[in-house]
Design a binder for these strands. Sequence first.
DNA 1: CCACAATACGAGCGAACGCTCGTGTTGGCA
DNA 2: TGCCAACACGAGCGTTCGCTCGTATTGTGG
Lengths: 205, 205
Amino acid sequence: MDSDGQPRRRQARGERRIGEILEAAAALFGEVGYEKATTNAIAAAAGISPGSLYQFFPNKEAIAQALADRFVAQMREAHQDAFEEGADFAAMELDELLDRVIDPILAFNLANPGFKALFARPDMPAGLTQAAAPIQAALLGRVESVLAARAPGLAAADRTRAARTLVQVFKGLLPLVLAAPEGEREVETRELKKVLRGYLGPITG
Amino acid sequence: MDSDGQPRRRQARGERRIGEILEAAAALFGEVGYEKATTNAIAAAAGISPGSLYQFFPNKEAIAQALADRFVAQMREAHQDAFEEGADFAAMELDELLDRVIDPILAFNLANPGFKALFARPDMPAGLTQAAAPIQAALLGRVESVLAARAPGLAAADRTRAARTLVQVFKGLLPLVLAAPEGEREVETRELKKVLRGYLGPITG
DNA sequence: CCACAATACGAGCGAACGCTCGTGTTGGCA
DNA sequence: TGCCAACACGAGCGTTCGCTCGTATTGTGG
């Protein structure tokens, strides 16, 4: 019960350790999932003892939480990239729109294998998916606003449902893209965009 | 080490118990997933003691395996229904084709909440997804053959990829349909079919 | 340089879980 | 009816896992 009045004054060494622990945890979560990644294994992968690990995190969930926070921040950047302010989504070609939105998010997932493992897997404490909720909501909102720009006639409820469907299709096909060998990735990506285009075409004209 | 020379002669009571255990396990797996469903909890849900449970199954994995076998058999029927021999998939309207294929598989998933939990979740022993592999392969093969009938010009590799994509889209949107409240289910189902139709349209013409 | 916080260690605690075992009960068959 | 296998019970064994604790070492501010 530290009651964590304040988060303890860290030295440079400690800050470095925290980074190492999070990196080790991300790798392990990505490989075996949250539940099967034991705290002792995370400590070992980070090159420290179990006791040392708990100098920086009160429990296992806090590690995942910190990792989630880090991912959320990075993901927000990727989304900012995807839904750039300057672009005119209403006028843009559908193919270009898809490229601009999909490619950065795909790149992020490709660069962070631990991410999908943490957020897509259903084997983690409720608090974690909750940590991802804000970014999911933000993504849905952006998709919806793009939809609103391209299909002004669409009722709000239909727009929301369409956005949810699009995001879910993306999440569903993501494993196919991520699991594809280096050379096949481009083809799978095109396939993903084909699906989205086929669904969006009749909606946005 | 019974070496299970033969599977032991069962009485009627035992056969009944096996059914009860599998039903309890399916419900629990569906609620909390494979890992978090403890064997003692399964026994309790089936109304028996832990010791009795192990009179019928050598270990937890065997329960899931038996459940998987049962699901595979039922699923095969659902697929048989979906890909009925008599139908002419080449001439049929795309909308009718989708209804005929999607509805029975959807109904099966609706009627068996434990199924998706067992096969879609990534938190189970390798042997279990392996148990689902035959049915997955069969499903892919059927989709491919329908594709071959409707798009004869499509190269084999593209056909395989398209089938994989279709199945994955279905699996990706399935949670949306299953999680939808009673009244929304029909709408979500239509949405799912819209996605498939949008993707299939350009391929099958 | 000294005192104290931060960092580091790793054996092992307590709880949970899969499963066993000794024992008692029920049911089919000669 | 008597015998034996099938069925049933539940305390608890062995192991794993998250986490702690006592202790030793390192860095830092005064």
